[in-house]
Design a protein around this nucleic acid. Structure first.
Length: 446
RNA sequence: CGGGGCGUAGCGCAGCCUGGUAGCGCGACGGUUUUGGGUACCGUAGGUCGUAGGUUCGAAUCCUAUCGCCCCGACCA
């Protein structure tokens, strides 16, 4: 992509309404535009990152054996009357009447609808286990939206629902989700710690939240700091192997880690003092096992091998996709701007032409662009007629993890400069070698 | 929803107290200049002062209402 033809409305000054760093940088980098309190347009750069994150979530869900579908944003109220939540949900639910005065709502979540789909088509244990999920816009009419996309009213969320024949099988689904979520966050360059949580309006007693440590987080967290060193890495987990999956969950949930909602001071004090940590965290996901709460209320039953009919065992699991952009920026930035992890960056690399109009520089940049595209890596080429400083400042702000700097001076020596946004370190190498390095770097993030 | 604050040019702000018909910086646009970290200079365009009503000869400024946004709190992916 040529920057001169792209739509990247960067701001030099901080918009006053943005109080936290992720919100400021998303506005300054031209990623989002607020349309109303807690409602945003996603401008091209922000949209690219959103789609990238969505893609990673999809890949990890599918890897775990979960099946994507898509449910609508608007739902009929009747489904929610069946579960009893139409009255329970309160003002947070946006209620709408259509032209025939039918009660509708903009979905804040989809337990009712997925249960309806399930009961319409599944009636036998032979169809289980089954996990369906979708990634769709949600609306919760928060009293006080804030912090940009971290706490919007409209937000993009992955929500999944498992259906199982018995409790053991449902708990395996719970564990499977935990492992798939750990892998999802790691691919985004995040350390998200599973913490025992309170269940809230969804119900159920088995639930964990995933928290990204950041001092701007909304939750106070208490943890043994050794949990932050745990990594799933690239180990191959067999998602069908109950013992193996449960083992990974044990590994990640044995050390103390809780939010203020479930904090137990007596247990916390048993941690060696040097490992006791109190901090703040951003909630980026939550998993629930709630058994038959919805299946009983809505008549979602299956026939067992012995011919009896039982309500299906369920759980639900969510990842805040749009919120993750904010969380990643909170966890990865400096005073100049965003620093995207390779896994989610909107463009893998930026090309800065230091002297636009110089024949050798223009030609070298075009060749680099072409070579990278041929490798399936689309660079953002800053071909504007701007000074070097302005181009560098823009690249630093939008946070591409790698930058290739091309100028007449270097080209005379046959080299370009490859710079890491994170470390700031540069190395001079031939254009061909620079392309190879970028290819190698991203091979690890595919 | 309780408490606090703010709406003046695309963005950041001044002007309001003490009414007299709107200004600064950045940005945009046109030049000249410069060219390895937001260069400098000249010029141009751009505003029903959130909206409605009131007071007044006259309202960005005073009064009333209303809408919107932000921050703190209680609630949430």
């Amino acid at each position: 992509m040529r920057l001169s033809r792209y739509f990247l409305p960067v701001l030099k000054e901080d918009p006053k309404e943005a109080q936290i760093v992720s919100h400021r940088y998303m506005l300054r980098a031209g990623m989002i535009k607020q349309q109303a309190a807690g409602i945003y347009s996603w401008l091209p750069l922000g949209y690219r990152v959103l789609k990238r994150i969505e893609q990673i979530v999809h890949e990890e869900q599918i890897r775990a054996g979960h099946i994507p579908l898509l449910m609508p944003t608007l739902q009929p109220a009747d489904l929610w009357r069946e579960s009893g939540r139409y009255d329970d949900y309160g003002q947070e639910m946006l209620r709408i009447k259509d032209r025939h005065e039918r009660d509708m709502l903009y979905g804040p979540t989809n337990e009712e609808m997925i249960t309806d789909i399930f009961r319409s088509h599944v009636s036998s244990y032979k169809d289980l286990p089954l996990t369906l999920y979708h990634i769709q816009w949600k609306f919760r009419d928060e009293m006080r939206p804030r912090f940009g996309v971290m706490r919007g009213r409209e937000f993009f969320m992955k929500d999944g629902y498992n259906f199982d024949i018995d409790r053991d099988s449902a708990l395996h689904a719970y564990n499977r989700h935990m492992v798939s979520y750990l892998r999802t966050y790691e691919r985004m360059g995040l350390t998200a710690i599973p913490m025992r949580a309170a269940s809230g309006p969804i119900g159920g007693d088995n639930t964990h939240e995933f928290l990204v440590l950041a001092n701007t987080g909304e939750s106070e967290v208490f943890y043994d700091d050794r949990v932050t060193a745990l990594k799933l890495g690239d180990r191959a987990v067999d998602y069908d192997n109950r013992a193996e999956v449960a083992g990974v969950c044990d590994e990640f949930t044995t050390l103390y880690a809780r939010t203020d909602e479930t904090h137990d001071a007596a247990l916390f004090d048993q941690i060696p003092a040097e490992h006791q940590k109190v901090g703040r965290g951003i909630e980026v996901g939550q998993i629930f096992y709630f058994g038959t709460k919805y299946s009983e209320a809505m008549g979602a039953t299956v026939v067992t091998p012995d011919g009896s009919k039982v309500p299906v065992e369920m759980g639900s699991h969510g990842i805040g996709v749009s919120r993750l952009l904010g969380a990643i920026i909170e966890a990865s930035h400096d005073e100049k701007g965003i620093i995207w992890p390779e896994g989610v960056t909107p463009f893998p690399v930026g090309i800065v032409n230091l002297k636009q109009g110089d024949a050798a520089a223009d030609e070298a940049c075009a060749a680099l662009e072409k070579a990278l595209l041929a490798k399936g890596l689309e660079p953002l080429y800053d071909d504007r007629d701007e000074r070097a400083g302005a181009k560098f400042a823009t690249m630093d702000l939008i946070g591409l993890p790698w930058r290739i700097t091309v100028g007449p001076r270097g080209l005379q020596k046959g080299v370009v400069e490859l710079t890491s946004r994170r470390s700031g370190e540069s190395e001079e190498l031939s254009p061909e070698a620079a392309v190879e390095r970028i290819v190698e770097i991203y091979a690890a993030h595919r």
